[in-house]
Design a protein around this nucleic acid. Sequence first.
DNA 1: AATGAATGAGACTTCATTCAT
DNA 2: CATGAATGAAGTCTCATTCAT
Lengths: 205, 205, 205, 205
Amino acid sequence: MATTEIRVPKQERAVKKRDAIIRASYELFCRKGYYQTNTAQIAKEAGVSTGIVYSYFQDKEDILLQVVRLYLAELKEALDSVLSGVDSGRGLSYMVEACYERLYASHTMRAEAHDEFWAMALRKEAIKELFKAFETELLQELYRKLACRQDVSQTLLREKLRLSYHILECSCHDAISPDLSKAERETLKQLTVSAVVDLLERKIN
Amino acid sequence: MATTEIRVPKQERAVKKRDAIIRASYELFCRKGYYQTNTAQIAKEAGVSTGIVYSYFQDKEDILLQVVRLYLAELKEALDSVLSGVDSGRGLSYMVEACYERLYASHTMRAEAHDEFWAMALRKEAIKELFKAFETELLQELYRKLACRQDVSQTLLREKLRLSYHILECSCHDAISPDLSKAERETLKQLTVSAVVDLLERKIN
Amino acid sequence: MATTEIRVPKQERAVKKRDAIIRASYELFCRKGYYQTNTAQIAKEAGVSTGIVYSYFQDKEDILLQVVRLYLAELKEALDSVLSGVDSGRGLSYMVEACYERLYASHTMRAEAHDEFWAMALRKEAIKELFKAFETELLQELYRKLACRQDVSQTLLREKLRLSYHILECSCHDAISPDLSKAERETLKQLTVSAVVDLLERKIN
Amino acid sequence: MATTEIRVPKQERAVKKRDAIIRASYELFCRKGYYQTNTAQIAKEAGVSTGIVYSYFQDKEDILLQVVRLYLAELKEALDSVLSGVDSGRGLSYMVEACYERLYASHTMRAEAHDEFWAMALRKEAIKELFKAFETELLQELYRKLACRQDVSQTLLREKLRLSYHILECSCHDAISPDLSKAERETLKQLTVSAVVDLLERKIN
DNA sequence: AATGAATGAGACTTCATTCAT
DNA sequence: CATGAATGAAGTCTCATTCAT
């Protein structure tokens, strides 16, 4: 009755194949966009037949979902590694700068991914959920990291973190513009970091 | 692409018709997305025949272009009205807050428009140009407005404005999330405004 | 939101085209069966493009529905003309024989139609309904015709008519078998008619 | 079609497996129809791998053929048991009623099977042959049973038997309709049996 | 100029069958 | 012998665009 059963691959080869499809799709969705990519191209890029795709995924939208999941997982991992690497005794601005650089690197590599997927979230509830969960978890973690620091004002900390994250995000997003010179890019970074540090340090009555 | 000549309507009726198509498309693109909207629906919503659409527009993408043009024009006008209304002797934070509110209103009304069009800019060079031109012009104007004020540090003013604009943008974007309470929304606004004001006021060596 | 709108053709040309699609499908479904006929073939046989088919019909199953409707309408009309032609003062056996011949003719022309459509009724509720309605109406009419005749026993008349109809049906169905000689066929007819006449005339306590 | 050799299983395990496939298919074809059943489902229901199916059967159609063979064999056996149980000195109407009930039971259990397979016979010559052979053999046997009875008119006996069989068949087929009340069903049975008995007893000049 | 019916390429998806393991 | 992953042809349906009226 239900549509064709979806294989949950456990054997190594199957896992690899599923992964190859996701990565090929990731690549293509970034390069050409979701709607400009068809399943034949995905199969070809992944080196499999069109049919097999539907053994691993419900439909094309399901592929997108898994691709976004991968995208967010990569981003999460990158940020985690940054955060865990600096939680020692370094200053706040060092930490923020590290985050900025990490986010910037993500944006450089996957310039298209973010916007493409973000826009898809508008139309696909399941994707919206992924983004929401990602943000919630990330902010929660940031909160845990900063809640005990002396150099961070605890007033409205959650809200400040939320805003800080978005500022970093959009600044990095803007900074990848090819119209900017290296110097301008550096300036933007300094401004962004200091704005965020200020926001977090400042006491608000 | 096509060879058919595109009519540049001068007669009143023709102008109205063209306009109706753009507005209908605007509406539909926001509600359902570009790819989920077909030309038949556009024609129906605009109250014209499918055939006539191709007298006014090269193809579907061309409609999108005009829709984005309209979207940006509306946004520009809204911001202009804000800026011209406050350039008297009001304080900086008053001005920033007015901008925030205006941007927030835009986002509320056209929550989908921004993301949808922004993502389309990735795939369509012509749309990217529109966005770039919009931003350039807006920042230029802001610069003119603020370049002479005493309460604004002139150091790196262009870069600060650029960043400020993006901060306001993304904060408003975030603020429309239905998960936020009214109080949280207000807090976010205050934080955003004060962060931007700080950024603009602060002297940077 | 709903799938593409279905055109309800009123202009003569459109009606003709819709009709052509139905007749082409009728033909093909009989000749090759529903599942062995694809939409491209239907379009080709009807002399239209594949796309236009979906302007007139929801989907392939909808075409089948209309084809069955046509099939039953033709059959109904044929039986009606037989019944109205004999309701004067002719004997019962004359009437039954006329029905037999009419049904036999239907079966000869559309040998495949009946079985094909009948089997489809198993899987498609909508088609089952059509068959049921057809039979109910037909039996109702037969009842009106015979309820007043002296040569027909009124006891259990409705049930007898139901059975009679099925006997005629299946006998005709059997009679088209190419294995039968002309004489055998004639014999079967005589036996069938007399069995039905007997059934209707006989008083049952 | 294929060149692969089809195994004719002799070992017990192999026979069982082949049988399981046929029975699983029988079940599924009845429940969902031939075209709505795919080979993966068959294999799963039979508890075998998809690959092995093609060791025992030429192709999907071949499975259908064996399923129909099984269906007819079951029906034959049921009717045989009825006929052999009553050939002593019981009256004709007792015998006909027993047949009716047996056929009715078959139809109840396998309501879908009959129509589904019957319609398939239209498209697949091999299946048509099976049905034809079944009927011929059955009628032959009936003939042997009745050819010597005093209460059966020998005139046109073969033809009468043929018609009788079809009457019983289609009446049973009709009788399973869920729209009928128990009483109506009983009435139909009585009418059918008496019509058949009449047909067989009656001398025709 | 206007209509909306018509076109047909191409998208997604299914599934009978094969074949490497 | 057996498995079930893999294949790819073929089917249904959509929709941007054209064109006869």
